[in-house]
């Protein structure tokens, strides 16, 4: 049995991370968490309303699930730092997913501001998970700056287009020492499985679960896919080949 994924000193057995956005009802969030077994869930601080019990999304997340507040809405490193501090003061813990977006059309992360925010927040004791456009030199700088993991995008947020940045993510998986968590663009369980087979340490899935007809069952489906993909990675996948390879080789008799 492999040991869990360690992030910020915490061990996560389930490598499917989820999100709170886009559900038709907040009650479904707790049900989805139960069905999927997801142990970490991201939440946009901008949506947290501590002044209203019924509307406070935190009420719908069980204590055994780790909160990963995100800086959605931030356009600069300074704004991301402010959001992180508000989240910590609001009792959301030390984890922070840096999401700095200056383009409302494709929602591409601003890598430069993200690096700056990572430096500041890691120094301040946060467990920092930056969301980035996959880029190796940046990833190495993020590691140096103290990122606890790196979250490269598979394709645009909410696009459900799958792992379009596959080759770039493979480079990160190959060269980075911190965990790689594929975030954004994962539209179906097979995409999640593919990311895990590549050797990603975890995936974060929101829209594909929350916008599904049955988000609870979809959460469970993703959980299976992530487990299968991880197991396949650990079992060492055989290489792909264009030609056929006989499963009983003709020269097998030679000793």
């Amino acid at each position: 049995m492999e040991s869990g994924l360690i992030l910020g000193g915490k061990s996560f057995t389930n490598r499917l991370f989820t999100g709170t956005g886009k559900f038709r009802s907040k009650k479904l969030i707790s049900k989805m968490l139960e069905a999927s077994g997801s142990e970490m869930i991201t939440i946009a601080l901008r949506r947290v309303d501590l002044t209203s019990k019924e509307e406070n999304i935190l009420e719908y997340i069980p204590d055994n699930v780790t909160l990963l507040p995100n800086t959605s809405g931030a356009r600069t490193a300074g704004e991301a730092v402010r959001i992180a501090n508000i989240a910590r003061e609001a009792g959301c813990g030390n984890f922070i997913k840096i999401e700095i977006i200056t383009d409302m059309k494709y929602l591409m992360p601003d890598n430069e501001e993200t690096l700056n925010a990572t430096r500041l927040l890691a120094e301040d004791g946060f467990i920092v998970l930056p969301y980035i456009n996959p880029d190796l030199p940046l990833a190495k700088k993020l590691e140096e700056a103290g990122a606890a993991a790196i979250m490269p995008l598979g394709s645009a947020i909410g696009s459900n287009r799958g792992i379009r940045t596959r080759e770039l993510i493979e480079i990160l998986i190959d060269c980075c020492s911190v965990p790689i968590i594929v975030d954004a663009g994962i539209g179906k369980p097979s995409h999640a499985a593919a990311a895990m087979e590549m050797g990603a340490d975890a995936v974060l899935v929101n829209t594909a679960i929350s916008a599904a007809h049955d988000p609870v069952r979809m959460g469970e489906a993703f959980s299976y896919a992530v487990k299968a993909g991880r197991m396949a990675f650990l079992a060492k996948l055989t290489e792909e080949s264009k030609e056929a390879n006989a499963s009983s080789p003709l020269t097998g008799f030679l000793r």
Binding site: S25, L45, R47, S52, E55, G73, A74, R82, I83, I86
Partner: peptide, 18 residues
Amino acid sequence: IREKGLQPIFKDWEDISQ
């Protein structure tokens, strides 16, 4: 809104201007 299978969102912003 709830009957239509949608979640009403009251708060979707946080003051980060200061």
